[in-house]
Design a binder for these strands. Structure first.
Length: 208
DNA sequence: GGCCAGGTGTAAA
DNA sequence: TTTACACATGGC
C-alpha cells in the first residue's frame, strides 16, 4: 500500500457500512451522547458501552445538565458494564461540569469547542478529543485508534505518535468534510471488528 | 482460564 | 522525556 487514498478506496469496496444506524456511523452523532460514549468506550467494546448508555437513559440522566449534578456513586454503578467505572465516572462528571461552567449548553459547546479545551480535560486524550470533535461536533477531524495503528503496521508502516498517524491518514484529504472523516474512521473500525483479532491482523481482503 | 477491548493519567526511572 | 503500570468488566 502506497497511500491513504488506496486504503480508503479499498475499504469502501468492502461495503463495511451497509447497515448504518447513523449517517455519520457513530450512534446519535451530533448529540451530547457522543461525549458520554467517547469516554465510556475507552479500552472497551462498544457493546458494553451500549449497556451503560441504556442504564443512564433508563435513569433519565443521559443529559448534560443532569450528569453535571448527578451523584458520583450512582454514576459509577450505572456505567459499571463498560469497565474502569470509578475513573470513567469521575472523568465524565468532570467534563460535564466543565462544559456547563465554560459553555452553559451542549449547543454552545458544539459551536465554540476547541481541541485544546478538550485535551485539557481529565480523561480526554487525543482519540477521545477527536471523537468528540468529529462525531459530536461535526468537525473535520480524523480519529486514530489502536486498530488503525495495527492495520497500518500490518502493511509495514511504523509511526512515532498519534499525530504522525493522523497526518499520514489525512494527507491528500485535507479539504474533506466531517462526514468524510467520520465514515473513514468508521470503516476502519468495522474492518477491524471483522479482520483484527488481538495481535493478528488479516489485511488480505484489502486490495492494496 | 488467560487474553483482550474504539485509552488515559501518573509515578518512577 | 520515555516507560511501566493501574484502572475493571465481561465475552470469547
Amino acid at each position: 500500500m502506497n497511500s491513504t487514498q488506496e486504503l480508503y478506496q479499498s475499504l469502501e469496496k468492502l461495503n463495511l457500512l451497509e447497515d448504518l444506524r447513523d449517517s455519520y456511523w457513530w450512534p446519535n452523532s451530533g448529540t451530547f451522547e457522543v461525549v458520554v460514549g467517547a469516554i465510556l468506550t475507552q479500552q472497551t467494546k462498544w457493546q458494553k458501552v451500549e449497556k451503560s448508555l441504556k442504564n443512564l437513559k433508563e435513569s433519565g440522566v443521559l443529559d448534560l445538565e443532569k450528569l453535571a449534578e448527578f451523584d458520583l456513586k450512582e454514576l459509577q454503578t450505572l456505567i459499571k458494564p463498560s469497565g474502569f467505572y470509578n475513573t470513567k465516572a469521575k472523568y465524565l462528571k468532570g467534563i460535564c461540569e466543565s462544559i456547563m461552567n465554560d459553555f452553559g449548553s451542549f449547543e454552545k459547546f458544539k459551536d465554540e469547542i476547541s481541541r485544546e479545551w478538550l485535551l485539557a480535560q481529565k480523561g480526554v486524550g487525543e482519540e477521545t478529543a477527536d471523537s468528540i470533535l468529529c462525531y459530536g461536533c461535526y468537525r473535520p477531524e480524523m480519529v486514530v485508534d489502536s486498530y488503525t495503528n495495527r492495520i497500518l503496521n500490518a502493511f509495514g508502516y511504523e509511526f512515532e505518535s498519534y499525530g504522525d498517524i493522523k497526518e499520514w491518514l489525512i494527507s491528500g484529504f485535507e479539504d474533506r468534510d466531517a462526514k468524510f472523516f467520520a465514515l473513514y474512521h468508521g470503516m476502519i473500525v468495522e474492518f477491524a471488528k471483522k479482520y483484527v483479532k488481538g495481535k493478528r491482523v488479516d489485511v488480505s481482503v484489502l486490495e492494496v
